[in-house]
């Protein structure tokens, strides 16, 4: 029973990582650095709450979340693909922009500097056990299948073959008639949708938006992508591993075996170790960050 509870909580914590990481893998596989994940998630969280509050339903919240994610992805595409701006700089600026914009519009919409009012989520508390409630949430299921589905998309479809080619050797792909920019745009948009759903899960799970509520989860998803070496199934495993560490820390909180700050560090330290190549080196797609 304890094991089951542990597993369920791990999955609940992992869902935003799984969704955002799926978006990030898509983005990086077509050659665009996924530094904007955090901003896309936060935009999704805010969109979800706006939609659910004014639309009166979590489903409308999802539509608004995805629209917000697409909007952020379009801005990123405009800067990096059309104007060929540096992807690192744009990614970081996008995150700053979304943090500022959500705060600004939080005050405009709800006249608060910290949080929105309570909104409808999925399931709600009325539907019995917390565990069962979370499995009536469509985003949980979507999170669980996102990375396997992405694997299928990237390795079993013509679109996936072209996408990977664009991320590894865009000149060669272009020679074979692939429209590199259009493909990158599609990859970015898919990334925006998936990452915003990760943010929407957080907001709808807590039934409200709070300032900067993604709290670095976009970067943990990025860490999972690198630790999982850009392979969808390995990335999924990395997300679950990071989530399990967090769950363990929450459940052992009373025991004080290790300071919680050290557990928080696990994803970041593992990523640095993976990049340094101590146990098998993490090598990104060859054309990552290079748009000519």
């Amino acid at each position: 029973m304890i094991l089951l509870a542990f597993l369920l909580q791990t999955i609940r914590i992992a869902i935003p990582y799984l969704l955002a990481a799926a978006g990030g893998v898509m983005s990086e596989r077509v050659g665009v650095i996924a530094l904007g994940l955090e901003g896309m998630m936060l935009a999704g969280a805010f969109g979800a709450v706006l939609g659910s509050y004014y639309g009166g339903s979590a489903w409308i919240g999802l539509v608004c979340a995805m629209s917000a994610g697409i909007l952020v992805a379009l801005l990123l595409a405009l800067c990096t693909l059309r104007f060929r701006a540096n992807q690192v700089v744009v990614g970081i600026a996008i995150n700053l922009l979304v943090i500022g914009a959500t705060r600004f519009f939080l005050r405009l919409a709800f006249d608060s500097a910290s949080n929105s009012p309570r909104v409808d989520g999925f399931g709600g508390e009325g539907s019995g056990l917390g565990v069962l409630a979370s499995f009536s949430n469509p985003l949980v299921w979507l999170g669980l299948i996102a990375l396997p589905a992405l694997w299928w998309l990237l390795w079993r479809t013509p679109f996936g073959l072209r996408a990977r080619a664009v991320g590894e050797k865009p000149e060669a792909a272009a020679t074979l008639g692939v429209n590199v920019s259009a493909l990158r745009l599609r990859g970015l948009l898919l990334c925006g949708v998936l990452a915003s759903l990760g943010g929407a899960y957080l907001a709808l799970d807590q039934h409200q938006f709070t300032d900067s509520m993604t709290a670095g989860r976009g970067f943990i998803a990025l860490a999972a992508i690198i630790f999982g070496r850009w392979m969808p199934m390995r990335v999924a495993a990395a997300c679950l591993l990071f989530a399990a560490a967090e769950t363990l820390q929450i459940q052992l909180q009373g025991a004080q075996l290790v300071p919680s700050q050290f557990v928080e560090l696990i994803p970041y330290v593992l990523t640095i170790v993976a990049l340094a190549g101590v146990v098998g080196k993490s090598v990104p797609p060859a054309a990552l960050g290079k748009v000519e």
């Binding site: 405009l78 104007f83 600026a93 922009l97 500022g100 005050r107």
Partner: peptide
């Protein structure tokens, strides 16, 4: 927070222009 947005816009605009 208006200025947070403006600062981010300046970064994006410089990076693209």
């Amino acid at each position: 927070q208006l200025v947070d947005i403006l600062q981010a816009v300046v970064i994006l605009a410089v990076a693209t222009t």
